[in-house]
Design a protein around this nucleic acid. Structure first.
Lengths: 202, 202, 202, 202
DNA sequence: CATGAATGAGCATTCATTCAT
DNA sequence: AATGAATGAATGCTCATTCAT
């Protein structure tokens, strides 16, 4: 019996947190975190303002958890591509996975885009780590593609780190741009466009 | 004599506005416009808070003017590339021009990145126009490159609009990323990375 | 036990609002609402500025509630006179009731006097309704007095609406004037003076 | 020649002042002096803000001059009634004169109504004098009417000062009310209504 | 677990006033 | 006699945070 109670309680607890997560996603994606108040988030989640503080401690921490929650999911998706024995197909899968992720978690995308290059952002440290790991992952895939490609003596060597950053940037912006300005655009066409970057390596 | 007076007056008049522009650039680039108060901007510019309102009417209008001021300069730089008879060299020049511009006007870059895909941004209308025109310009260059390239029958046709967006996104992010995380990275290597996108067209 | 708790909570909740009401009354009566800041009201009420906004939403709304609170009390007092079977005695009671009311709620009186004929007042709509209803009430009393009076063929008919407005104006001003400039003046002498207006009807 | 210049200059000087007077009248009548800024007044008058300060020294002084300018005109009008050998006809003329004056100088009326009973008004002193003199004038007329009337032993004596205040208040409110809410109402019907107060004296 | 009344520091904005020209 | 750029104190309002219940 006490187990049932505990479970119910736990479910409830998660419920509030989850509702707050969902509400934050929605609101922050459209207006940016600065323009969304804790009051609004609480109201949208259907809980009291106190509950936000009970569950997260602060607005900043709520956003930090939003961020780390998102990054975990993102890396799960990227991992699939890494496993692929064919690096080109693997990178393709990573990009399409990212684009789908950005569509599912729009406020994560917006948060990332607007905060990543703000030098004094509150979440600078964790954002930097995210950025670094994603770019490193892409770079490793590029290295594998270059290694498996025909040894092109004419390519004096594009800097792979820079290229990885370009692919990262293109994916991020394309993913968000598709959602906001081109909902009709398919993930495939976006993937194709980003993959164009890898042509010189093959 | 009256000329001296006039000139001094004009200089004075412009002075405040210009100082405020410069101060805003600096502050907003690092922390985002929401985290910068009018008080701070005024103090950094060495004028009183009232002067901000005398010259701009509102914080929002100050930012709007910052934006239109920046976009004018950006298009001036892009225009140079458009003139080039060789579209590949022209696009290259557009990209390097953009990267240099983003380095010179860091808060413009930050503002653009963080506000462009915020659907309810105060400056949504003018940002959309900026985005549209830049992408259209890039797309036109891509079309010229594709037209002058060898007719590759294997390329069933990448969507040029999507590709242009990818180039736009890669340039924007690469430009800002270089400034914030890789000051040692040269403009040339960035241009090369972005130009990798155009390989399939040639 | 839980009742005690509830009661205390309710008292607390109402407490702030009531303290703010009282403080506003005092301050606005003497200086006019424009010359009284929210800071001052909060300080006078012994609460923080935020509490004003938590309870009322805006300064304007605070004043609006002050107004509707006052008008409810005023109409309660006027109602007594309406019940009187003798219309002359009834009107007399209405006037003395109003004068006493104006003395008890000085800021209500001041607010009414200074805002009622300001065409672009924020509270124009509710003020107009107040004015209309009070004058209509007076007019109805006058009609009853005229009907019960000796049919004076020499009175070609004073416009009752205008006369009611005159009585309304005289009462309003007399009530406020007594408070500010003639505290020694009795309510009775004021009532007598206002009732002088009704002589031609009798 | 210098005379022409002087005259023109003088005319110009008066011009600015007069334009400011007229503009203030209009704006303050509708919104109250607190809600009208010096900027607005200057713009409405078609002069610069500095000119307001050149001509009046302060906003407060502008309003003070507006007030003393108005009171001079008002007393001129009232004087006519005082001259009349028949006190009843004289009072009638005073009231109609006042009503016409209030219609011509609406912001004067509004200013008077809203500031007269504000104990801490900036113009309290001069307003008090105005009020006192007008009431005294009315009272003197009432005394003459009472003296010339049939000695009514039933009238144990209404306080003439209170009655004069009632007439003053009724006239003030009726004059303003007519302008704002009943433009169709004639001056005569208003005069008749106010004169009803004097019936017990006759 | 959850609530919501209360807080107060911080913010954008207004506006009467000054003063160099 | 007039201008208008500049000022800064004051104001209404927002919002993350606290805490008693």
């Amino acid at each position: 019996m006490s187990e049932t109670v505990n479970r119910r309680v736990r479910v409830r607890a998660t419920d509030s947190k989850h509702r707050l997560f969902t509400a934050s996603m929605e609101l922050i994606g459209a207006r940016g975190h600065h323009a969304v108040s804790v009051d609004e988030i609480a109201k949208a989640a259907g809980v009291s303002k106190g509950t936000v503080y009970y569950n997260f401690g602060s607005k900043s921490e709520l956003i930090a958890e939003l961020l780390s929650y998102g990054v975990a999911i993102l890396f799960e998706r990227l991992e699939e591509g890494v496993q692929d024995p064919d690096p080109t197909r693997g990178l393709e899968s990573m990009i399409s996975g990212s684009l789908e992720f950005l569509a599912e978690y729009p406020s994560f995308a917006q948060l990332w885009i607007s905060e990543q290059w703000q030098t004094e952002s509150e979440w600078a440290a964790s954002l930097e780590r995210m950025r670094h790991e994603v770019i490193a992952l892409v770079q490793r895939m590029l290295a594998r593609i270059a290694a498996s490609g025909t040894p092109a003596p004419t390519q004096p060597g594009i800097d792979l780190d820079t290229l990885a950053t370009a692919i990262f940037g293109a994916s991020l912006i394309l993913g968000r741009d598709r959602l906001v300005f081109h909902p009709e655009r398919s993930v495939e066409s976006c993937v194709q466009a980003v993959m164009a970057f890898t042509a010189p390596l093959r």
